[in-house]
Design a protein around this nucleic acid. Structure first.
Lengths: 228, 228
DNA sequence: CTTTTGTATTCTGCATGCAGCATTTTCCGT
DNA sequence: ACGGAAAATGCTGCATGCAGAATACAAAAG
């Protein structure tokens, strides 16, 4: 029932060279989503035969996708025993957040220096939209926009490597953050921090933006800490 | 002539469970080395058939290895056209160094807090050994120890994610650094920086260690900048 | 001589087959 | 009934086969 048709292969009808997506690439995204969304829990063995049949693909592209995810750190390869979904310890998560915090602090500094007014306005727009979702208590959309904002700020730093690594950590942590559903009061605090972030960015106040980004993640860390 | 026998499959004769290494894993390391050492220049297409025959392996594990390296960012996958060795622009390198600098600064701070005396002594030992190579003008060994020291310091931070990402960037830049052969005067300056690094670490002076690590990389950046 | 179109070759992408290792089950000895 | 060895099953790892896309080449038209 989870056939190949279910695999969301991008069918962009737009102009330009039509996307010729390879199956292994599609599988990477599909498996990544499955892991993040918890369809594949940590410790689960990725049986090539079974999983391949379930998805309606042969083992070859599946294996290739698994190798890719292994390099991303989402699965672990055990020689002669296949791959298992990596389990992150509390310290692992803390470590990732430490690095993520440092990277966002850096991104904040660079963003203040390099962002154009238009780009900042765009982030502001995302922020306003997010606030709207907050008021509407639309947690899902709020969460998505939240991530988008962080990603957008990192992009402002105009540093591909920084963006890539940030994205990777964000992806790994996404799974964890599904757990950390903060209460209303913490949620309000997070929104306040976001408000300050945008204001610091608009003022191009490097130190303040960097600081609030750091605090923001430190709080996220607190939330996760209590959830584990 | 580059047969499978040439592939350095780890034949640890030591105790413990004998390493059953998979071919695709061996290939990852082999290809990575080939790219770093310039046997495969940027822009080169990785022909599965030809390369496989040259290395004496079939296409399947080779393809898996390529997917892994693609996730590492060393090669680029072009749909229906295979993989090419990624070419890094000057800005790419600068971006990586910016991130690397930030990470090392973080590592320096953490190392001062977390390292044991024994660990610091070990780094000191590596340093002394490196100085010996410097005096003997043994560039190759010097270079290796240099990297080892940086890696060691990062390990002191006791943060797996930090260590992983650092390693990844270090690997990507390794290829570039082969170019940047600094002259004697810069070399001396680098050695002096290292001296200060160790001294700051021994004094557990976070700010100073972080600072000198940052300066050290900034100088490396200067060297590369002139070489491009 | 340049451009274009049709063809041939090469290469990638995916599926499948087979051998070896890991694990489980079974059967025998105690 | 219990422990252990040996067979049996299942799975991974690697090789190969085949279809389709991309490219190179060649011939013909302008």
């Amino acid at each position: 029932m989870d056939e190949i048709s279910t695999l969301d292969r991008p069918t962009s009808g737009g102009p330009g060279p039509i996307r010729r997506t390879a199956l292994h690439d599609t599988l990477v995204n599909h498996l990544r989503d499955m892991i993040i969304e918890g369809n594949l829990e940590p410790g689960t063995r990725l049986h090539e035969g079974q999983l391949g049949e379930q998805l309606g693909v042969s083992r070859t592209p599946l294996r290739e996708a698994i190798k890719y995810l292994a390099s991303e750190g989402l699965v672990e390869l055990v020689p002669s025993r296949g791959a298992i979904v990596k389990r992150f310890s509390g310290k692992d998560v803390q470590d990732m957040l430490t690095v993520l915090r440092n990277l966002e602090e850096l991104a904040g500094k660079l963003a203040c220096q390099l962002a154009s007014e238009a780009e900042i306005a765009h982030v502001r727009a995302l922020h306003d939209e997010m606030i709207r979702c907050y008021r509407a208590a639309d947690r899902l959309q709020y969460y998505k926009l939240n991530q988008d904002i962080h990603t957008a700020i990192v992009r402002l730093a105009q540093n591909a490597t920084l963006a890539d690594i940030h994205q990777m950590l964000q992806t790994r942590l996404k799974r964890i953050r599904f757990i950390g559903h903060e209460g209303p009061e913490k949620w309000a605090a997070a929104v306040a921090e976001h408000e300050e972030m945008i204001s610091a960015l608009e003022a191009r106040d490097q130190a303040r933006l960097s600081d609030v980004l750091g605090r923001h993640l430190a709080n996220a860390w607190e939330r996760v800490r209590s959830a584990l």
